[in-house]
Amino acid sequence: MIRIRKGQSPAPVERAEFGARFRASFHDPAFRAEDPSIARLEEIAWQAFAEGRKAPFTQKAGPGYADPDYDLSTEWIATKQRIAEAQRRWAEPTGPSRVLLICGSARNDGTCPGEMSKTFRLLELCREELEGAGIQPDVLDLSLLTSEYGRKIHPCKGCVSTAMPLCHWPCSCYPNHALNQTNDWMAEIYERWAAAHAVLIVSPVYWYQSPSPLKLMIDRLVCADGGNPDPTSTSGKKAGRAKELEMAGWNYPQHLAGRVYGLVVHGDVAGIESSRRALSDWLDWMGFIDAGVQARLDRYIGYFEPYAISHDALDRDAAMQEEARNVARAVAKAVVELRSGRLQAARPHLSRPRPK
């Protein structure tokens, strides 16, 4: 039996600290008239936390699962059903072609920065090209994490590093109502990835890396590459059972493989090449198909110029704008080839000697 290593996690927070954290959401003096009501809600939340009521609503898994009598979260079941429907739409040969167009910047003009991002402007150029090619763009603006009330992508908890089967597809770590880890946007985002025939990511570079909203989404997509579609097979989050399953032989299913991708990465002083390569390598690993050399773009905008005039630099850089359009054109063409079967026919069908 594989030994499960313990000793990192501290003791659960005490009642007083829990109360302080709970009440922090009601800091505004306007709430003071409702302090007795807030205290009652706090006690309910404390009981849910103390009892570990992660999923208040469950139902029996039913046929098709390893343990039909296991109580699955109704929210997880609903997410899985929506993903299955999205996958059905993706496979429908006569349906419209869809490209998930992702804005990876954290900046928009609806909150502190006070100005839209250059990333979004480049994304709009890509959208125009896709629409002109008769493709439906689905814009996923990750900057909404910074500007919309209650919009969240919770961080990946790293279950995959304990054992791949412990990482469920879709993610079952959230929502966790006992820990107030709710309103997880990924439940919707998984569905949008599944429905898309291609993804086109437009992103700036922050400190040599992808911005945190984009990285949050990337980490949470680990379950799409090898994730376990049956949480009952691990009795939920039973680490020992998951280790046994992996050691018995796990096939690391690639749930989103076979889609096309394109990338537009921009920066101002450094890091564009490494950031673009990291994104390319990630999508290649997931089983995505790049749309060609012109679909993998990294460029500087206003190299070492002041941030204050960076939009002006983009205005002047007609070549950069046209290159971004070319990424969209390449993706659009690759989607046509993919859906006709010609793109897959030209690719070798080789088994992976070391899947993971």
Rank of each mutant, 00 (worst) to 15 (best):
P170K: 01
H177G: 01
A178C: 06
A178S: 15
A178N: 03
L179Q: 13
Q181D: 12
T182N: 12
N183Q: 12
D184I: 00
W185H: 08
A187Q: 10
A187I: 00
A194K: 02
A198R: 04
V205A: 08
V205E: 06
Q209E: 13
L216V: 04
M217S: 03
I218Q: 12
D219I: 04
R220D: 02
L221C: 14
L221M: 15
V222R: 12
D225V: 05
N228P: 07
T232A: 09
S235C: 10
S235V: 06
K237I: 00
K238S: 12
R241K: 15
A242F: 02
A242Y: 03
A242T: 00
A242H: 07
K243Y: 00
K243V: 15
M247A: 15
N251C: 02
N251Q: 14
P253W: 08
Q254A: 11
Q254M: 07
G258Q: 04
G262S: 03
V265F: 02
H266Q: 15
H266L: 13
G271T: 09
G271W: 04
G271Y: 07
E273H: 14
S275N: 15
R277V: 11
A278V: 04
L279F: 08
D281W: 14
W282M: 10
W282Y: 14
A291H: 03
G292D: 03
I301P: 00
F304E: 14
